[in-house]
Simulated assay, not measured.
Amino acid sequence: MAVVSACIVALSGCALPRSGPKDDEILAGSKAEGGPVNVVLVDNRVAVASYLDDNLSFPSSFTGAGLASTDTINPGDVISVTVWENVDPALLVGPGQKQAFIQEIQVDQAGNIFMPYAGVLKAAGNTPEQLRRLITRKLDPQTPDPQVEVRRVAGDGSSISVIGGVGAQGVYPLVPSTTRLSAMLATAGGVTIDPDVAQVAVRRGGTTGRIFLQDLYDDPRLDVALRANDKIIVEEDRRTFTALGATSTQARVPFPQGRMSVVEAVAEVGGLNGNTSDPTGIFVFRREVQSIANKVTGRNDLGENEPFVYVIDLTRPDGVFLAKEFQVRDKDTIYITEAPFVAWTKILTATSQTLSFTADVVRVGDLLTDN
């Protein structure tokens, strides 16, 4: 018994292998104890005060914009012109012919086109009807009562680029059937990424708005009207959190959905390890934003990116509810401490191995003495 006791005492003072710091070691590092970290026990007030509204959305300039006119001609568009003449010989066609087809006239970057006998005309900014009247006025002095038809053909001028996780990436014309975001995504083959983690960004000039695809399903206001030269980018959510300690999985984990709580994050890595985890010691490590850091602590002198450790005790009557309300953010680290008996189990295991080795040595010594 004296040998066993000595071994236990000796091993208890050794640095036994473990998955991370103990809860008392973390708490000892708090600023209240002279350490460098803000350690905060999560209650209802803290759960509310620490919430950061990081919802994705489109700016009001997107959601408030009306449908664009798909008739307006833009630089890069292609138009076709048909002219009927009532005289013989006609101006644009040969003898006996009454109809002239002028196909695929591309609007240059200055917004102009060249029309035979009408010269250089400003096309960009006009509708096909306005351009028809302009061509008619130019031709009328040269051929009596010309009948003109102008059609806008899909071209590069009014187009949308769709890239990323869609069925068919490409450049698509902005036509009456694709003037809204959902219609353009459908035209591009639909979203091929898991809807729970898919994000849709719309880039317009120097402004970019981003939403979760699921929000597009839920909120019709986010089905924004598109504009020529918009870029639509579909990609997976890039946010991650890290799980460490007495969990079923220790890993860097992508967010499985748009918004997550501690309960959902722990469940995502397989839950608590029933053999080793301590439900009183769930710690969330993060660099806190200045406004929330001061709100949580009731101070006004904390700076940006203050190191915070939030402590959740699941054994409290409201512990699970607090874990469901406490928000997990990008780059958080969730650490679950080991239960106290785990350390003793390790000590006893190491002790038994030491005693077994000692007994083997004694037996070998006895054999050598006998011989």
Results as ranks from 00 to 15, higher is better:
D53T: 12
D53A: 14
D53H: 10
D53G: 13
D53R: 12
N55R: 15
L56E: 03
S57C: 03
S57W: 06
S57T: 14
S57M: 05
S57D: 14
S57K: 10
S57I: 04
P59N: 07
S61F: 04
S61D: 04
S61A: 11
S61Q: 13
F62G: 08
T63W: 06
G64S: 11
A65W: 03
A65D: 02
A65I: 01
G66W: 07
L67K: 11
A68D: 02
S69A: 11
T70V: 12
T70M: 03
T72M: 11
T72N: 03
T72H: 00
T72S: 04
I73S: 09
G76F: 10
D77C: 03
D77T: 06
D77L: 01
V78P: 00
V78F: 00
I79V: 14
I79L: 15
I79P: 01
I79Y: 02
S80Q: 03
V81N: 01
V81M: 06
V83N: 03
W84P: 02
E85C: 02
E85W: 09
N86H: 10
V87W: 00
V87K: 10
D88T: 08
D88C: 00
D88F: 02
P89E: 11
P89M: 05
P89I: 05
L91G: 08
L91Q: 09
L91P: 03
L91M: 06
L92K: 04
L92P: 01
V93I: 13
V93C: 05
G94M: 10
G94S: 14
G94W: 08
P95Y: 09
P95C: 00
G96E: 08
G96Q: 11
Q97K: 15
Q97I: 05
Q97N: 13
K98C: 00
K98M: 08
Q99A: 06
Q99M: 10
Q99I: 15
A100G: 12
F101W: 12
I102K: 02
Q103F: 01
Q103N: 15
Q103G: 07
Q103R: 15
Q103S: 14
I105Q: 14
I105G: 02
I105K: 11
I105W: 07
Q106E: 13
Q106P: 04
V107A: 07
D108Y: 11
Q109K: 15
G111F: 08
G111H: 12
N112V: 05
N112Q: 15
N112W: 01
N112M: 14
I113R: 10
F114C: 01
M115R: 02
M115F: 14
M115W: 10
P116S: 06
P116G: 07
P116H: 08
Y117A: 09
Y117T: 06
Y117D: 09
G119M: 05
